[in-house]
């Protein structure tokens, strides 16, 4: 499947300061159609803040945020804190998006493998189920760019692998661009085309294999983290989908 790698959104020379704390420093990132870009970095590195800038939820101190005119963004926040007193089924949750089309909601749910959750209370979902439902909600907008803040948070290893391959499948089917935040190292690397390593500024960026050999990456995650990745890359030169089939590698070159 071929994708045109036109840029969907660009952040140029973003600086952000909270009081005397420099949160983002001269960050420049491009997000492309059909390309999975992963923002990776330690806690407090400014990944979520960068995404908030991209979404227009946070005004940068300086720098330019460009989005393709009329760009449809599907957003999946890090965590929803819905009060237990709020009676809400998955169906009703999806209805509170701007979408009014029931059959579309059902097909979005089945796209993420959660069609059986339609009548479930949102408070009874497991971590993985909740992530899928939130992903379905993001899909309701027919996004050209999916923005996922730690999409595998609170999910066990197997569930993480499944979610990452689900995200890849969505990208393949819809040809949308994907931006995700992660701070786990090895799993995400397999499911991404482009890695941007952030610690207030962009430490390094590029193809996953290229990035893991970058000295700046070694410095950020330490030799152990880099070593783990090297082992992982060595053992896995292909990817599996949910059913264990080998998925052909998808390369995204836009440099």
């Amino acid at each position: 499947m071929s994708h045109s790698h036109e840029p969907l959104a660009t952040l140029s020379n973003i600086n952000l300061q909270f009081g005397s704390t420099q949160v983002l420093q001269q960050v420049t990132v491009e997000f492309h159609r059909g390309c999975i870009t992963t923002l990776i970095g330690p806690n407090g590195a400014g990944k979520t803040t960068l995404v908030r800038v991209l979404l227009g939820l946070q005004q940068p101190t300086s720098g330019v945020v460009w989005q393709q005119p009329g760009l449809r963004i599907g957003y999946m926040p890090q965590k929803l804190q819905i009060d237990k007193t709020f009676p809400l089924t998955v169906k009703r949750f999806l209805e509170t998006s701007q979408c009014r089309d029931k059959s579309k909601m059902r097909s979005a749910l089945s796209d993420v493998g959660a069609q059986n959750l339609w009548k479930q209370s949102i408070h009874d979902l497991s971590g993985g189920e909740m992530q899928r439902v939130m992903l379905a909600r993001a899909l309701l907008r027919d996004p050209e760019l999916l923005v996922l803040d730690e999409p595998v948070q609170g999910v066990d290893i197997n569930g993480q692998l499944e979610l990452y391959s689900l995200i890849e499948r969505i990208r393949d089917q819809r040809g949308c661009g994907v931006v995700m935040i992660s701070h786990d190292l090895h799993l995400v690397m397999a499911a991404t085309d482009h890695v941007v390593c952030i610690n207030q500024h962009v430490c390094c960026s590029g193809h996953p294999e290229h990035v893991t050999n970058d000295p700046a990456f070694m410095e950020l995650f330490g030799p152990r983290g880099a070593e783990q990745l090297a082992i992982y890359n060595h053992q896995h030169n292909h990817r599996h989908n949910v059913h264990g089939d080998i998925v052909t590698s998808h390369n995204c070159e836009h440099h």
């Binding site: 979404l55 939820l57 957003y75 929803l80 509170t96």
Partner: peptide, 13 residues
């Protein structure tokens, strides 16, 4: 209802 679920999500939507 949308802002009660999540204000930032509602804003993006």
């Amino acid at each position: 209802l949308a802002i009660t679920i999540n204000e930032e999500l509602a804003k993006v939507e």
